[in-house]
Design a protein around this nucleic acid. Structure first.
Lengths: 144, 144
DNA sequence: TCCAAGACTTGACTCATTCCAGACCAGTGG
DNA sequence: CCACTGGTCTGGAATGAGTCAAGTCTTGGA
């Protein structure tokens, strides 16, 4: 884990962020359920905290994303999701049926074939791969 | 080109779709400006047609997407965009600044490294690659 | 302990997209 | 050529995700 949950306060400070109850709650919510959308994170954080406005959740998540504490993924057709695994360049598989997201390790380190042949003048900074398919759970309940 | 614009009527019929003025207008709008978001397509279609409701544009685009006549792409942070190039599995580069989308041909035919090493039980159907960067235009105006 | 910067609340708002009911029209059968 | 049927379009309202602004509260350095 890249997230030392043992001391989230120090973690926030390390990123130059103020330590508030809201931020700690959101941080542990994101760490606790990776790939959760903002409203689920808000719900989880409220369980720790009692009350927390939706706007604050977005504010906190944006702050975290900006400094690189969490990563934001936005699969087509579903709201933005967040995860704390930011250190490596892994990718995601998304279930067409239930929208579940699963981490997929990059099979080939530096991703050789992710350099486009003709970039049309683009200065490429990052390649993002999304696999679409059916997750194990949905596949079980559908088949047979 | 996979789209014989010479006879769009026959094209629609071939896909089992009814031929209406709205559909012809939307089809030519999408073909005319690839990667345009729905509202630009609506504007372009209205120029041909005089009037066309937004709901109808979405209805038509969904119908087209369903039969595979157009492809829908949804880069994070921007509304859905549509293109008529559906035959090959090309990918897209998205400009972080202006949101422009550019086609990128798949460098390696069958995309060998796009098969995940551990699929976590997922049955993968399709890999989608998005490159994030700065387009030539934005790069020109920013640099120096 | 005090204070300023930054964080949170509330509530309204935007934007893309969908849903609904009813009017309308393309294409089929007579 | 005409009438019918079901798919298509209109207009308007609704939804869901996310943003914004103004005011209040809290954190952390002095």
């Amino acid at each position: 884990m890249s997230l030392p949950t043992s001391d989230p306060t120090a973690l926030l400070r390390g990123y130059g962020l103020r330590v508030t109850a809201a931020r700690l709650a959101v941080l542990s919510a994101v760490a606790g359920q990776p790939h959760a959308p903002a409203d689920e994170i808000a719900t989880a954080a409220r369980e720790h905290l009692g009350a927390l406005s939706t706007a604050a959740v977005y504010e906190v998540l944006n702050a975290f994303t900006e400094v690189g504490l969490v990563r934001r993924i936005e699969p087509a057709g579903s709201p933005a999701r967040y995860e704390t695994r930011t250190a490596d360049n892994h990718h995601h598989a998304v279930c067409r049926q239930c929208g579940a997201v699963s981490d997929i390790d990059c099979a080939v380190g530096h991703a050789p074939c992710l350099e486009p042949s003709n970039a049309n003048g683009f200065v490429i900074e990052q390649a993002e791969v999304t696999w679409w398919g059916i997750c194990a759970t949905c596949n079980d309940s559908t088949s047979s």
